[in-house]
């Protein structure tokens, strides 16, 4: 098997586990919707602001979802000594990283699709400038999944991983929050030209952290 076949094997395994355990469908997705609803309730007195702040609320919610998805991705490896099984599997560590990141990205994509419907309905947002909006979303999702997987394995072997992961991850993904929010704001307001620099930033971030993850995941897994 080549690198991508091995990555597909790992991603398929993780997604099959998620499909069967339904953690994403029954916990992460409803959590995202609840957060959106809470934002809507909290800002209701200023209903005119909702449309303006919708992109930021959307991506903050996605960040919360990322924490849950990444935590889940590594908690399944903590059961029954599965992490040692993964280390002994013979799979290339870069493939392990790509596979786990791809599975997280798919889960985030499902969350984002649901949240998009949510912000359109709850916050009365009109989606203009579809091309930069979609590209920004794809790049941000890849960046979040790659960064989350990298920091997820860093925290995986620690007893305090649930509380440590947000502290480590959220500051690092601040550029994604900023870039994706700005790109969405520009797209929604119909000024697509302003979105492209942010899409580029998100693309660079995604490529950078995917590369770092492919290099660093193996040593971090050995230390976890």
């Amino acid at each position: 098997m080549n690198l991508f076949q091995e990555a597909a094997l790992v991603a398929g395994k993780d997604l099959r586990i998620e499909a069967r355990s339904r953690v994403t469908a029954q916990q992460i997705l409803p959590f995202g919707l609840v957060v959106l609803l809470l934002f809507a309730f909290a800002l209701d007195p200023h209903r005119g602001d909702l449309t303006n702040v919708a992109p930021g609320l959307f991506w903050v919610t996605v960040l919360f979802g990322t924490l849950l998805a990444v935590g889940r991705a590594f908690s399944i490896e903590a059961e029954n000594g599965a992490r040692d099984g993964l280390r002994l599997s013979g799979l290339d560590s870069s493939a392990l990283f790509l596979g786990k990141a791809a599975a997280v990205a798919v889960e985030l994509a499902a969350l984002e699709a649901l949240l998009t419907v949510g912000v359109v309905i709850l916050f009365n947002v009109g989606l203009n400038g579809v091309a930069p909006l979609v590209l920004a979303t794809v790049a941000a999702t890849v960046g979040l999944a790659a960064t989350g997987t990298l920091y997820g394995v860093l925290a995986a072997g620690l007893r305090v991983r649930e509380t440590l992961l947000p502290v480590l991850l959220l500051p690092v993904v601040a550029p994604v929050l900023l870039g994706a929010t700005k790109a969405w704001e520009a797209s929604i307001s119909g000024v697509s030209g302003d979105a492209w620099p942010w899409v580029t930033l998100l693309g660079i971030f995604a490529v950078l952290f995917t590369g770092i993850g492919m290099l660093a995941f193996g040593p971090l897994l050995e230390e976890s």
């Binding site: 098997m1 094997l9 399944i76 029954n80 000594g81 099984g85 013979g90």
Partner: peptide, 24 residues
């Protein structure tokens, strides 16, 4: 070892198949 290294939500056949494919 003392633990199986298996995934709780995969079936017996799926756990075996994943290990076999991973080993090439």
């Amino acid at each position: 070892g003392h633990e199986t290294g298996c995934y709780d939500d995969l079936t017996v056949a799926e756990n075996v198949r994943f290990a076999a494919r991973a080993a090439g």
